[in-house]
């Protein structure tokens, strides 16, 4: 399987390099804003500094979310193989569908772990640079994000085994992803009307809404990630076996 993982790396490295660049820019942007809060233009606006300080979770987690979601795949390696004719070729060899599917799952898993390490690195740099202590809570939240990324990624990869084009997977995945913000907005909008300063207090209010449930987020995410990984793997094997060429 090393050869297959090596192949997956070679054919997707351009895509992941772009994801890395975008993630790096986002992380840098956040650090620059934070620096500006202390030494720059924002530091002259006490109210802005106060509001942003209450929403430090954005500085900690938003770049990590961008990193994780940027690296979570849509089955790029699989569709690249399909379009190149490699999938058909691999079915003429003695490679089993378990090996073929396993290589995709492992490759994407390795990339996501790399993204997770990047998140931890960012968090460490951010916290140490601005005198913030790294708590287990932060790490649990990053790990929850990692699990969320795994859920998306393996859902997409499983879907890819049944789809003809990557655009189908992207469309379905984005459509499902858009449902949640829509539901969130539908929930938040009536609440926003009650707030005196919705623009500045909204983020703090949103963070407060998560307080009662945040202890459950990590175990639930971990459980769902395992379900999507293991379940997705076996469904993907069946999907690939059923594919005709």
């Amino acid at each position: 399987m090393k050869g297959l993982i090596y192949k997956n790396y070679l054919i997707t490295r351009k895509y992941y390099f772009m994801a890395f660049v975008f993630s790096f820019i986002t992380a840098l942007f956040m650090i620059l804003i934070r620096l500006s809060m202390i030494y720059g233009n924002i530091s002259h606006d006490a109210e802005a500094v106060s509001d942003l300080t209450k929403s430090m979770w954005i500085f900690r987690y938003m770049p990590c979310a961008v990193i994780i979601l940027g690296f979570a795949g849509y089955g790029e390696a699989f569709f690249t193989d399909l379009n190149a004719g490699w999938t058909r070729f691999s079915r003429t060899t003695s490679l089993s569908t378990h090996q073929i599917v396993g290589s995709y799952f492992l490759s994407e898993g390795i990339v996501l772990v790399f993204a997770y390490i990047m998140c931890l690195l960012y968090l460490t740099i951010f916290c140490l640079s601005f005198g913030d202590k790294i708590s287990l809570n932060y790490i649990a939240n990053i790990t929850s994000l990692f699990c969320f990324g795994a859920i998306i990624q393996y859902f997409n990869l499983t879907l890819a085994m049944f789809a003809k084009k990557i655009q189908t997977v992207q469309l379905i995945s984005v459509s499902i992803a858009l449902i949640f913000p829509w539901l969130l907005c539908a929930y938040i909008y009536p609440k926003m009307k009650e707030l005196e300063n919705p623009d500045t207090v909204l983020l703090e209010w949103m963070a407060q809404q998560f307080e009662p449930i945040k202890a459950y987020i990590f175990p639930v995410m971990l459980f769902l990630a395992l379900i999507f990984t293991v379940g997705g793997y076996f469904i993907s094997v069946k999907g690939l076996e059923r594919r005709t060429f």
Binding site: K7, A84, G85, R88, F89, T92, T93
Partner: peptide
Amino acid sequence: KSQISAVFDEIPFHEVLNANQISVILSDV
């Protein structure tokens, strides 16, 4: 399938690969 080879009218390898890399990949296949 471990004893046969299939050859199609289109090459089944990605255009970004070179012959050396193909050898590494196929040594595993």
